[in-house]
């Protein structure tokens, strides 16, 4: 039976070692299966967060050969036989143990966003074309791979100035909702720090749900911020023609 060579980070609180394991490969195997094999046959103390094994819970986020990915969606057959496979915890969030990190910062950020605010007398009938854009954003499984790969959070560690792509998606889903009445543009510009994003699209590249984070969420929000704060001519013309 062919074997895969896995280099898995083992340790706690940012200090540890890469340990090498040999794992027999079976058809249809994913990296999470290999990690489970190591748990069962080499070391049951290997810590990994996982749940559904169907790429829907967003729990098993890690970095495979340096690329942020879900362990359960990383097929072993995409690697060359004998190729070393490096498995690390995600970089952006505090390391706890082995492949597990503390992503609770994200839940704190989420609380800061003005929630869905429909008008009290809202007509709850709306059309597919009104809701289609927002439905794409609802596919998010909160794996936080986009947060992990975003260089503003990952390399510059500017969690004080930028909410990250996941929450740009959430804010876009609220701002574009046909029944929402809240205006979050000032918050998107100042608190969420959309200007920190230089749209290098890594969030889109790693999204396991194929959400077009940059093109459909961040850039449209940037354009709305431009409407409000950087386009005096457009604003003036709107005030004349639309009476706004």
């Amino acid at each position: 039976m062919p074997e895969a060579i896995l280099k898995v980070f083992r340790g706690e609180k940012d200090s540890g070692t890469f340990e090498t394991y040999k794992v027999p490969i079976e058809e249809g195997m994913v990296v999470l299966d290999a990690i489970h094999y190591i748990q069962q046959n080499n070391d049951p103390s290997l810590a990994v967060r996982w749940n559904c094994k169907a790429a829907k819970c967003g729990s098993c986020s890690a970095e495979v050969n340096g690329r942020p990915a879900l362990l359960c969606k990383s097929r072993m057959d995409k690697f060359e036989p004998g190729q070393e496979i490096t498995v690390q915890p995600i970089k952006t969030f505090p390391h706890l143990k082995d492949l597990v990190t503390d992503v609770s910062w994200n839940y704190e950020v989420n609380k800061k966003i003005t929630p869905f605010t429909p008008a009290p007398d809202a007509n709850w009938t709306f059309y597919q074309e009104d809701i289609e854009r927002v439905q794409e954003f609802r596919k998010c499984i909160e794996c936080f791979l986009c947060q992990d790969v975003c260089h503003v959070l990952r390399d510059h560690n500017r969690k004080d100035a930028f909410y990250g792509p996941r929450f740009m998606v959430r804010m876009a889903s609220l701002e574009m909702h046909p029944l929402d009445t809240a205006n979050r543009l000032k918050s998107i510009k100042e608190d969420a720090g959309i200007g920190m994003c230089n749209i290098t699209k890594c969030c889109t590249e790693v999204c396991p749900e194929d959400i077009h984070i940059t093109d459909n969420a961040i850039i449209p929000m940037k354009e709305r911020v431009v409407d409000e704060f950087y386009d005096p001519i457009g604003k003036f013309l709107k005030s004349i023609f639309a009476g706004k």
């Binding site: 940012d14 540890g16 070692t17 340990e19 090498t20 970089k91």
Partner: peptide, 9 residues
Amino acid sequence: NETTAATHP
């Protein structure tokens, strides 16, 4: 099988 020296992940 193998272990490397202690390091940051």
